[in-house]
């Protein structure tokens, strides 16, 4: 019987230690792939941000999402106060980076794969001490919603960029290059990811206990339902949008350096 405090006798079958398990499947595959995927995705973006770009991500009507919104163009003096190794991209990337770093899906992904906390279910781990998200620094994860607000603002700029990418020679003359479609998809995927956010789901209606009694109920329930629908695929959109942001930047980098031609579609 358990004592009132809840402390329990250990089951004699329990064995501590990293990777101790009776599972026979390839439980280590998922964390391994996650490490590789996150490594490539965030590695590229970090490299791109530090490396900078002579055109600050501009190529014709295109603007790389890594440089948008272009705050350094609105307030050019900022750059003079910053050390030389800081590229303008770093001024922006902390916000979407923070959004992803505190995202409930990414937390699962890196707690499992990088922190081995735990690496997989019913698999032993290397740590004895554990405080979860109750103490600094991880307690800071609780401000995820503020990064979400920022991400939504940035999303608006990315949509602006995507639409602008369809205006090659002045606003009335619509011409689409392959890059325009790349930027459009970028905005679409980021929307699918950002609008499926758990915090947004809560704030937009999930906090209510009863949908049918409040005056704006139908609207809230519909909004909550929409976010829920995206939220069910949050992991998918997290990966697709991450990959596509990287690809978008790479694409613009290649066409602006002349190593790739941007085909005109129509």
């Amino acid at each position: 019987m358990s004592d009132p405090s809840g402390a329990q006798a250990r089951n004699p079958l329990y064995r501590a230690g990293f990777a101790v398990t009776e599972r026979r499947d390839l439980w280590w595959m998922e964390p391994l792939l996650t490490v590789l995927g996150l490594g490539v995705g965030f590695g590229y973006l970090t490299w791109a941000a530090f490396l900078g770009n002579p055109e600050h991500g501009h190529y014709g009507p295109y603007l790389s999402p890594v440089y948008s919104p272009p705050v350094y163009e609105w307030f050019p003096s900022i750059m003079t106060y910053l050390p030389a190794f800081v590229s303008p991209a770093l001024l922006i990337l902390w916000a979407p980076g923070g959004f992803r770093a505190t995202c409930y899906y990414y937390r699962k992904a890196y707690y499992r794969s990088f922190f081995l906390n735990p690496a997989s279910c019913a698999v032993g781990k290397p740590w004895e001490k554990y405080c979860g998200e109750t103490e600094f620094p991880l307690v800071v994860q609780n401000i995820h919603r503020y990064f979400m607000y920022l991400a939504v603002v940035i999303l608006a700029f990315l949509w602006y960029d995507a639409l602008k990418a369809f205006t090659r020679d002045g606003p009335k003359d619509y011409v689409a290059g392959a890059g325009s479609v790349v930027l459009l998809l970028n905005a679409v995927f980021l929307s699918l990811y950002t609008l499926g956010c758990h915090s947004l789901r809560h704030l937009i209606g999930g906090y209510l206990d009863c949908f049918s009694t409040c005056p704006t109920s139908k609207l809230r329930h519909t909004a909550w339902g929409g976010v829920t629908c995206l939220n069910e695929r949050h992991m998918l959109w997290a990966w697709v949008s991450l990959g596509w942001v990287g690809f978008t930047d790479l694409y613009i980098r290649l066409v602006s350096s002349g190593r790739l031609a941007d085909p005109v579609l129509f």
Binding site: Y104, R107, K108, Y111, R112, N117, P118, S120, C121, A122, Y130, C131, G132, E133, T134, L138, V139, N142, R145, H198, S199, R201, H202, L203, G206, Y207, N231, E232, H234
Partner: peptide, 29 residues
């Protein structure tokens, strides 16, 4: 706060309850 949403509970639930996404995270929020 101890829950680090690594979702093993959801993975093993025989009733397919989305424990983490639908119960724990909304509670955290």
């Amino acid at each position: 706060g101890y829950c680090n949403i690594t979702k093993c509970c959801t993975e093993v639930c025989p009733e397919d309850i989305h424990i983490t996404d639908n119960a724990i995270i909304p509670l955290k929020e």
